[in-house]
Design a protein around this nucleic acid. Structure first.
Lengths: 131, 131
DNA sequence: TGAATATATGCCCATTTTGGCATATGTCAA
DNA sequence: TTGACATATGCCAAAATGGGCATATATTCA
């Protein structure tokens, strides 16, 4: 592929409103962890749990809510958050595809031979349309 | 928890050099996907595959390499990248904890009852040390 | 050696993100 | 109604990020 042809590039990649982005933040993962094993929790307690200011926590919760990883319920003057674990299924499904890479030695060997087969005979890394 | 006490906050959360952050980028996931089912690929072909400029792709590969999700091998004047799927195990392990949320109805019911039990009797959302 | 190819880097800019503070909004109690 | 409590939002600053272009750094070939 000599000439690069500098392909027209899309303006920008969408980053927000994406589960992968939501869990990229250590603090948000922490919140998810806490909610995951405590069932539910109002903002106030989450603030104490993660050690951030209340506004900061609220913002993280907002992000998590937008991507559907948590759900809120107004209870009195509190806002009780609970984990909606199903929102993480997307991530799980995506990584699970690569499970063969670490599952066990047998599978690792199998995967390697598959790879070799692809590279030498059948379809040697031919994503684009070079015949 | 009446008074907020505005806890001293850490300067900033580390975002880079973290697998979760690496896969937060759609483009990087795309690269991972491509490498995942093609075995290996030199930068040039990846450029065509993802439709970005060569420098951009190189930078993404750099990030993926730093977190150990891909590995490089110099072959002639090419740099052949391959997926090191084991680097994704961290992510898999983390999300798998929440598998009970979507696996099947039985587990979902089980999980709900567990949650109820925790909330009413045993340890009702008591993360901090309030006795 | 010199040209062409293949990648990586440096620099620059626009955008995004996180966190803090102040404050608005909503809720309960007296 | 007034005041205390619980959260969400707006605004600002610091930092990071992604992408493009130009260019440095190999590496192969004539």
């Amino acid at each position: 592929m000599p000439k690069w042809a500098y392909i027209q590039c899309v303006p920008r990649a969408a980053t927000t409103s994406d589960v992968f982005n939501a869990i990229a933040e250590p603090r948000r993962r922490q919140i998810i962890d806490v909610l995951g094993h405590s069932g539910e929790m109002p903002v106030g307690e989450l603030v104490l749990a993660v050690g951030l200011t209340q506004p900061a926590v609220s913002k993280h919760l907002s992000v998590l809510r937008e991507v559907g990883v948590v759900a809120v319920e107004r209870r009195g003057r509190e806002r009780v958050y609970r984990l909606n674990g199903e929102g993480l299924k997307t991530v799980h499904d995506w990584v699970s595809v690569f499970e063969r890479y670490w599952s066990n030695q047998l599978n690792r060997i199998k995967q390697r031979s598959e790879s070799l087969a692809r590279t030498s005979k059948g379809a040697p890394r031919n994503e684009k349309g070079t015949p």
